[in-house]
């Protein structure tokens, strides 16, 4: 077994186990910590795929900012005792789990069907043989030349969302409501 394969299996195991514990932990703080571990695992998977810039952004934005936001909001709430962390009802629960199982089965089936088509395999072996390019430079060139309009629109959207979040907290019933 090569180092690449071992790394992939290790990271897949860490990611799936911590993702599973996000939805199985009853205490939301433990869920948040498991989610942080999942984010770190995903960042490491990005590194194995040569997406170094995205791995850094993943660590800073998700494992840093978003997780701090989640944990801080959890600290605001008094959640020492949680009533019914999971949904009630055996029948509806069974239906929900079955629908999740059907979805995952469909996706995995589609992917393994795609294994047989030669297009994906030739493309993957082709690129795997090629030397790794500087993906950060290519990403910047694509982002600021080809997709610059989307980048600007994203900036405007962030401004709108910042204003909206402030307005939400200032509105009636918000955290900083005007008297």
């Amino acid at each position: 077994m090569t180092a690449d394969a071992f790394l992939f299996w290790f990271l897949a195991f860490v990611t799936v186990v911590s993702g599973l514990s996000v939805i199985l932990m009853v205490n939301p703080i433990y869920s948040a910590l498991s989610l942080a571990m999942t984010m770190i695992g995903v960042a490491a998977i990005f590194v194995t795929l040569n997406a170094y810039f995205l791995a850094g952004v993943q660590l800073i934005v998700y494992a840093g900012a978003v997780m701090v936001l989640f944990v801080m909001v959890l600290m605001l709430f008094d959640l020492k005792h949680e009533i019914q962390a999971f949904t009630r009802g055996r029948l509806t629960g069974a239906i929900k789990i079955a629908s999740v199982g059907i979805l995952s089965g469909l996706i995995v089936g589609a992917v393994t069907m795609g294994l047989k088509t030669p297009v994906v395999i030739t493309a993957s072996s082709d690129v795997a043989a090629a030397p790794t390019v500087d993906t950060t430079r290519a990403l910047a060139e694509n982002l600021f030349i080809k997709n610059v309009l989307g980048f600007e629109v994203l900036g405007v959207m962030l401004l709108v969302i910042a204003v909206g979040a402030v307005a939400l907290s200032r509105s009636k019933g918000g955290t900083h409501a005007r008297d």
């Binding site: 992939f8 897949a12 990611t15 799936v16 993702g19 599973l20 996000v22 939805i23 939301p28 869920s31 948040a32 999942t38 998977i45 795929l49 989640f70 909001v73 959890l74 709430f77 959640l79 949680e82 019914q84 962390a85 999971f86 949904t87 629960g93 929900k96 789990i97 629908s99 999740v100 199982g101 979805l103 995952s104 996706i107 995995v108 992917v111 393994t112 795609g114 294994l115 994906v120 395999i121 993957s124």
Partner: peptide, 28 residues
Amino acid sequence: TLNHYLVLSAIMFSLGMAGVLLRRNLIV
């Protein structure tokens, strides 16, 4: 191969979907 990553992605997506369907805490 690519399929390994796609299957991992599918498993994680299904975990997230199970969380949305099964949990009752808004933050979770």
